[in-house]
Design a protein around this nucleic acid. Structure first.
Lengths: 240, 240
DNA sequence: ATTTTTTATGGTCAAACTGACAAAAAACAC
DNA sequence: GTGTTTTTTGTCAGTTTGACCATAAAAAAT
């Protein structure tokens, strides 16, 4: 991205809020800024929208650039247009929210220390907290630009939509073979609270099974490593 | 708006979806395009975002330009960025949804035939329908640009948010003195279906009265023209 | 003046849903 | 075998929802 922009026009950029659920916790991807402004600060991956790309296409390009990944669930989050959000000039940002399964994201992450990094997210009523491991803790105000606000908006949107959209399923390693326990873990990570397993099962079955959106799979067809405890039934998200 | 735009950059515009509830029906404001492209077509009011204005400020300016009005509820709807949505060049549009009480909008509308015009909206599962009076009926495809899609997005958003936000109150002439019947009319217009008055009352009272968001007003303080039937209690939306 | 009509308000009742919890089932660890 | 863990089924009271019916308070009709 150019470090100085023409001062007489409005530029359009895209920022990607790339989310995953790792070990029962919601995580997001931040990269460290190599140059000014906010040199050395952590920031969401961003990219100017080019003449020949839609914002959606730009957001997907950017995602593929960060993680060599084919595709992922993406949805437009909000457009941020405050006048001084970028010191280089007038830049508005269309933020996108991406959900990537941890098992797919994990092998694509570069080695520790370099490049982008995952941060655990906490947003309990009060302020945003980010935890990057090795004692690295950030608050929303530590981030570049208005990216703290973008993250807050994204997490709240995710929480609001989780129980009337399919969004939770996109965090599952394989929506065509998952257990209700795995789905519950996604809910608990996103909502940052525990959920009663029994009631969760009932809710999901009412919401999806009756309408045919999910169905049980014969476990013999889907070999799975099993841990302790009674083995769980395998469900799949159906096509229609 | 210039009829030819520079071909090497991305322009940012704002479109306003100005909504009101008139005679129990959801209505929106369209203007007829004076010049190309889509000359003579009906379109949402739009405006390029200038260097020194946020999108929100641009949307408000545009609203004030259409209706000499001080302020109104506005909320960002969605950003449309398809490549060929504007034949003049590369223009993305940040759509805003505005809610204006009919009693405030009504005296500001220009005489029939000239300028902007109100259209009744119908969106029943199938396609979007617009009714402008005098036998003037449009479908979403008759509109300029992608404005049919913008309207569909806006109506669906409004329906989705009406019962967990305060948005319905902004269609009331005076949120500090309204009856539950008036509020019910807003709901029925937005949802395009009837609502049981008794259950509606119970729901609203549970949702707002217990939390102190609305309160009953002494009717003596608020003189009101009365129609037929038992006079209704007057409620007000409280500050906090 | 009385009745009818209209709108507002209050109440009932069964069905559906919710949250908290108990208990059985099916696997592993020892 | 006995414990432990996780999944799964069931229970039960409290709440919410949708469909009604009944009454109250006003204007309109007779």
């Amino acid at each position: 991205m150019a470090e100085v922009l023409r001062q007489d026009q409005v530029f359009v950029s895209v920022d990607d809020l790339i989310l995953t659920v790792r070990e029962g916790r919601l995580n997001l991807l931040l990269s460290r800024r190599a140059g000014p402004p906010f040199k050395g600060c952590w920031a969401l991956p961003g990219k100017l929208v080019e003449r020949a790309d839609s914002a959606e296409a730009t957001a997907l390009k950017l995602l593929r650039q960060m993680l060599p990944i084919r595709e992922a669930f993406m949805e437009q989050l909000y457009t941020f247009t405050e006048l001084n959000r970028d010191p280089r000039g007038r830049v508005i940002s269309i933020a996108y929210l991406a959900a990537v399964p941890w098992e797919r994201l994990s092998p694509l992450l570069p080695a520790e220390g370099q490049g982008p990094r995952l941060f655990g997210v906490s947003l309990n009523g009060g302020a945003l907290g980010l935890e990057g491991g090795e004692g690295l803790r950030l608050t929303g105000g530590d981030l570049a630009f208005d990216h703290g606000r973008i993250i807050e908006t994204g997490v709240q949107r995710l929480r609001g939509k989780i129980d009337y959209t399919d969004i939770a399923f996109h965090f599952l390693n394989d929506p065509r073979a998952f257990t209700l326990g795995e789905l519950q873990t996604v809910y608990e990570a996103v909502l940052e609270r525990t959920v009663d397993a029994s009631n969760f099962r009932r809710t999901i079955q009412n919401r999806y099974e009756e309408t045919g959106r999910i169905a049980q799979t014969d476990r013999a067809e889907v070999p799975r490593k099993r841990g302790r405890g009674r083995p769980a039934a395998i469900y799949r998200l159906t096509d229609q």
